[in-house]
Design a protein around this nucleic acid. Structure first.
Lengths: 241, 241
DNA sequence: CGGGGCATTGATCCGCCTCAAGTGTAGTGG
DNA sequence: CCACTACACTTGAGGCGGATCAATGCCCCG
């Protein structure tokens, strides 16, 4: 007897998709096995190294992707070079906007990243056919909208100190949603990127990090590695209450 | 002969809906006449005066609404009272988020407003039945997401001068999408609201308005009434290129 | 006339930016 | 093994933009 037959989840699911994280919480999770088979025929996994663009601002979009690993930053740039990161995306987020063919922002790998790339027409057909898929994308859009609005409060009304604490808190909660008392983690962004995310300069970010360290809110193991002994304390430093 | 019969648009459409703006571009436009009939049975028009809440932050939401007239501001508040407006909504926008029962923000009438109020369960049933409706709401969410991200760039990277110009430009383009060379219009927000939208203080907003006036970018007819002689000039002052 | 909202204007202060120098740390080649 | 460079980050000194505090002007309404 074929062992595979017993696994109702995996039966008929393409081999490349079987262990894929995107099927749990990601868009692929709402597709039927047949749809998955079809999609997988035309999709390719790709590694994108830190600093490389996935989609450029104002470019024509020829494909969509799903993040499997790593962090993607979405940013906007003004004509004179001023830049603002307007969102971060983690696995298993979907990148791209069906039926819009031009991107209004740049998507760039913040860390080394792995994505699953889909051709535009296939996704668009699946969206038209399956209301599940649109529902899933709608939900992601609403989640991103909430995050964007939270961040508007941070950008508009918080001090530099609170901004940096808010960033550290945001990363901590995204990397490990089950919040223990303390945790250690690696920042997916450079100081320059953090500055662009917070609407600050590199120097101010650096100064506030040292201040948080001296105050005992965080420990800085090395440039990228941070320990938070007390998440609630960090949350308070971020102005969350 | 019955004249009404000839109007294919209006046949079978409830009387209250016939002249309603929300059927052109709003969510009601994607409903079938039968659905409209059913929805209209349970919906009520309501006037909300400037300063009154439609939905409070953290409140349970018992209904959804559609803006028929006026401007609604969406805002977030920190525990210590600092406030940030995170979005403005105009007719015929839809207010509320199906299947979420708690609001993370406050919706308050910025001007005197007229809305059409729907009971929660009816909307949720219609959303489940009609993929058109979800598609429409999805599109609105994406539009709001774009606007939120544009505004993040404004909040994070623009000077006070550019922020105020950006605000004036945003209002101008929303009130009258066909952009002529010049236009005169009434600001839907008080100075205090503008400050909360821009992450500034009232005083700074006021100072920058006078500066724009002295530079000839705008004329201030009275507190709320503004004339923009050259929209492109305002756009440049807003840092849009 | 007087009072109460709003908005403007002025004077001063402080937080963050700017510019500039210094400190790791990793990679490269002698 | 140790210069040498490259790059990211930190630290310092000074200036400026926007906040703060306070006074004044402008309407609308009683």
């Amino acid at each position: 007897m074929d062992m595979m037959r017993k696994d109702i989840h995996n039966s008929e699911v393409p081999v490349v998709c079987r262990s894929c994280e995107a099927r749990h919480g990601g868009v692929c999770g709402v597709l039927t096995p047949q749809q998955l088979v079809e999609l997988s025929k035309h999709s390719t996994r790709k590694v994108v190294h830190a600093g490389n663009e996935v989609v450029g601002q104002g470019e024509r979009v020829a494909s969509y992707s799903n993040i499997l690993k790593g962090v993607i930053k979405l940013s906007k740039m003004m004509a004179d070079g001023r830049q603002q990161i307007v969102g971060l995306q983690f696995a298993p987020d979907f990148i791209g906007r069906p039926f819009h063919h031009e991107s209004t922002l740049t998507a760039e790998a913040a860390t080394d990243t792995e994505v699953c790339v889909f051709p535009k027409p296939i996704i668009e057909r699946l969206v038209s056919e399956s209301s599940n898929l649109e529902h899933q994308l709608h939900n992601q859009a609403l989640k991103e909208l909430d995050e964007a609005r939270d961040w508007m409060l941070t950008l508009g009304r918080k001090t530099a100190q609170e901004k940096v604490a808010s960033f550290l808190y945001l990363i901590a909660t995204h990397l490990d949603p089950e919040k223990g008392e303390s945790m250690t983690y690696e920042l997916p962004l450079s100081r320059a990127d953090i500055a662009d995310f917070l609407g600050l300069t590199i120097e101010t970010v650096s100064r506030q990090m040292t201040k948080l360290r001296k105050d005992g809110v965080i420990q800085i193991e090395n440039n990228r590695l941070v320990t938070v002994p007390d998440m609630d304390r960090l949350s308070r430093a971020a102005g969350n209450d």
